[in-house]
Design a protein around this nucleic acid. Structure first.
Lengths: 236, 236
DNA sequence: TTTGTAAAATTGGTCATACCTATTACCAAT
DNA sequence: ATTGGTAATAGGTATGACCAATTTTACAAA
C-alpha cells in the first residue's frame, strides 16, 4: 500500500493560481479573476480562495487591493523556479552548478563576516553542532544506508552569526533549491568523514579570524561539489 | 490633514498573534490557542483568524497541524525585528546597509569570475558603456539637477559577463530593492566624477584579471556607501 | 493492574450565505 | 468642462453548520 496523498484545498488553489499566472504569461500589474470567479472556476468556496490569496500575497506573488481587484506582482524568478519540475537532467545539473557557485560566494563571505563578530559562545555552538551531527551520522549509517543525506544546517548557522537578515533569506532560498535539485546527483560523492573534517576546518578558520584560511576551507569544501557537477555534466 | 489609517483585520490579527508569541516567550513546538479561541479572544470571526494563520504559516512562523493544533516554529529572532520595524527611518537605513553588504559580496564575486571569462570585446563594451554614461551625466547636470541618480546598469553588465543566471536574478532583485530604499538617504553622497572613476578602476582590474585589484576597487566603491549608511544611522 | 481498542471530545478544514466597505465608472447638474 | 453624487463591482467580515484528522478518554479484555 502506498500512502494516500492528502492535499489541502487552499494549497491546491495556490498551485492552480500560480500555473494560471504562468500559462497565461501574466505580467506585473495584470489582473486576476475576482475572488468569486476563482471560487466558481475552481469549484471551491470563497473562504478557501481567500486563504490561498493570503498565502500568495505573503509570498509577494500578488497584491490585493480592496474594492479594486487582485494584481500580479513583479515575478520573483527564484520563487517560480521551485515549480519548474520539467527540466531535463542536464539542465538540472547545470542549475546545481550555478547554485554551488552561489554557495561558494555566499558561504565564504558569511564566514568571513561571521569571524569578525562571533563570540566564543557562538564558536562553541558551531563545534557542538558539528560533533553532535557527526554522532548522528555514525548511528544513521547502520540503519537506513542509502538515504541521500542533505543537511545544510551548519552553513545556515554561520550566516546567522553574520547577522544580515536579507542574506539569511537568500541562503535559505539557495538551500531550498539545492535540496530540490540534489536528487539529480545520483549519490553524495563525499564521505561523511570528509564532510565533517571540512566543517571543522571552517570553524577553526573562523575561530582564528583568518580570512585566507576561511576562503581556502570553504572553497575546498564546495569545489569538490562543483567538480562533481561538472564531471557529471561532461558525461552527458 | 493626515490620511486615515485603515487596518485590515487579518493583518491586525497577525500582529496580535506575533506579540502574543513574544510576550509569552513561546518557543519552538509550543502550542497556540485554538482557532476558535483566538477568534473569541480577539473578537473576530474564525475565517479572519484562519487568513491570519495562513499568512503566519507562509512566513514560517507557525505550523498548522490538522486535528492537532497550531504550533510555533523554530524561529530566528531576526524575523521579528524586521516585521515590527515597519517604516521608521532607522529601519530603512539598516536595510540599506544590509543591501550594500550584499552588493559588496555579489559584485566582487561577479567581477572576479567575469575577469576569468571576459572576451576583449566584452571589456570594450564595459568601457564604452561607462564613457557614454559619463557623457549623459554631464548633459543631465545642466537640466534637472537635484534628481537622485540611481543607475545600476554597469554592475549588471559585469554579472551578465559572469553568466550565472541564478545570481543575475539575485542581482536584479538587489538593485530593485536598492532603488526602492534609496530615498531614505537624503542625497547621493558621491560626485558623479568619483563614481565614474571608481567604475574605470573596476574595469581595469577586470581587464588585468587582477583579483586583488578587483576586490580593492569594488570594495572602495561600495565601502563609501556603507559608511554613509552607518554614519546616518549613528546620528538617529 | 496493565493493555488494547473503540468511542467521544477536540481541533483544524470546508462550505454557503448574507452583509459591510472601498473603488471605479458613469451620468446628471451646474 | 468641471463637479458631485450614485450605482455597480470587488474585496472584507461574520455566522453557523458540517467534515476530517488527531488526541484523549473510557472500558473491556488479559
Amino acid at each position: 500500500m502506498k500512502p494516500i496523498k492528502k492535499v489541502l484545498l487552499h494549497n491546491a488553489v495556490v498551485s492552480e493560481i500560480i500555473s494560471y499566472i504562468q500559462s497565461n504569461a501574466l505580467k506585473e500589474g495584470d489582473k486576476l479573476p475576482t475572488e468569486r470567479n476563482l471560487a466558481s472556476f475552481l469549484n471551491v468556496s470563497r473562504p478557501i480562495v481567500r486563504e490561498a490569496l493570503k498565502i500568495l500575497e505573503a509570498n509577494e506573488i500578488i497584491k490585493i487591493k480592496h474594492g479594486s481587484g487582485i494584481f500580479v506582482n513583479k515575478l520573483d524568478p527564484m520563487f517560480f523556479s521551485r515549480y519548474l519540475a520539467d527540466d531535463d537532467e542536464k539542465a538540472l545539473l547545470l542549475r546545481l552548478k550555478e547554485l554551488a557557485e552561489s554557495r561558494l560566494m555566499l558561504e565564504t563571505f558569511a564566514a568571513i563576516e561571521a569571524s569578525k563578530v562571533a563570540t566564543p559562545q557562538q564558536i562553541k555552538e558551531l563545534y557542538d553542532h558539528e560533533s553532535s551531527e557527526n554522532l548522528n551520522l555514525q548511528l544513521m549509517d547502520e540503519n537506513d544506508v542509502e538515504k541521500p543525506y542533505v543537511n545544510l544546517e551548519f552553513e545556515i548557522l554561520i550566516t546567522k552569526i553574520y547577522g544580515n537578515p536579507f542574506l539569511l533569506d537568500f541562503h535559505k532560498k539557495i538551500n531550498e533549491l539545492w535540496k530540490l535539485n540534489y536528487t539529480a546527483l545520483d549519490t553524495n560523492s563525499f564521505s561523511k568523514e570528509i564532510r565533517h573534517n571540512d566543517h571543522i576546518q571552517i570553524i577553526m578558520a573562523i575561530e582564528n579570524k583568518d580570512k585566507k584560511a576561511i576562503e581556502k576551507a570553504v572553497s575546498s569544501h564546495i569545489t569538490k561539489i562543483i567538480s562533481a557537477c561538472t564531471a557529471l555534466i561532461e558525461k552527458k
